[in-house]
Amino acid sequence: MLQPNGPYYSIPLGRRDSINFATIEETLANLPPPFFNTTQLLNAFAAKNLSPVDLVALSGGHTIGRAQCTSFTDRLYPTQDPTMDKSFAKNLTLTCPTANTDNTTNLDVLSPNSFDNKYYIDLINRQGLFTSDQDLYTDSRTKSIVKQFACDQSVFFERFVEGMIKMGQLGVLTGTEGEIRANCSVRNSNNNVELGSIVEEHHHDEVLLSQY
């Protein structure tokens, strides 16, 4: 059961959503794959005007969730990634006996059901699941940030919130582009639904990250 102990933060209302659904190709083009190294990650985030601190903080979202074996078994087969803890790797081979196994495992070995900073302790212990996780501690450009977040959960929460708000401001639609949805999970049945007063009032919703 997910523990509600993640950061609370306020987000501005009124962001317009596209009236067209993103394609699989568009989605994957904007999601760094698990085999990316830190250089590739830094470049991908810089292209979105996100900093190395944003990269490490937002990667901390892997403190919850699960991953399919095929997203990381390249680190186990045919040879083990030397940056991976041997005991951790041995346990993973029990869950993923072959490279193409459909099984899943937790992203965070220490506290998989809690939104906290244990993900960074996993990295220090060489128990990061993806290459894109573990390389953050291996690479000198991001190692100190990982260590800081591992030592201070409150700083991680602060930087995570900053990164989430920054991402919420990417590619903002204005004017007549898109729509402000009455229900954020579905398109408006009538694209002319008037929700401008919500934007003008500048109200905010409270979000508890750990409940998602």
Results as ranks from 00 to 15, higher is better:
Q40N: 08
T27S: 12
F45H: 01
I64A: 11
D74S: 11
G65W: 10
G60T: 04
D54Q: 06
K48I: 03
D54L: 03
L41Q: 00
T39N: 15
R75Q: 07
A57E: 00
D54E: 04
P33E: 07
V56G: 04
A44F: 15
D85G: 13
A67G: 15
L28W: 11
R66H: 11
C96H: 10
T73V: 07
F36I: 05
T70C: 09
T79Y: 14
A46Q: 11
L31V: 12
S59Y: 02
A46T: 06
C69G: 13
C69S: 12
K86E: 09
L42C: 01
N49I: 05
V56P: 01
P78Y: 04
A89Y: 03
N49P: 01
L41G: 00
A57L: 06
A57F: 05
T63H: 02
A47S: 10
L55S: 00
G61R: 06
N37E: 05
A99E: 15
T83V: 09
T83D: 07
F72P: 05
H62C: 03
N37F: 02
P33H: 07
F72Q: 03
T95E: 10
E26H: 14
R66F: 12
P82M: 06
P82K: 07
A57V: 07
L28G: 08
P32F: 03
V56C: 06
T39W: 01
A67F: 11
T70R: 13
I64H: 10
P32S: 06
Y77E: 07
S51D: 04
N91S: 13
P82T: 09
S51K: 00
F35S: 12
Y77G: 03
Q80H: 00
N49K: 15
S87V: 15
T73S: 01
K48L: 09
Q68F: 11
P97H: 08
T98M: 06
P52F: 05
L50V: 04
A89G: 14
N100C: 07
T93W: 09
L94C: 04
A47C: 05
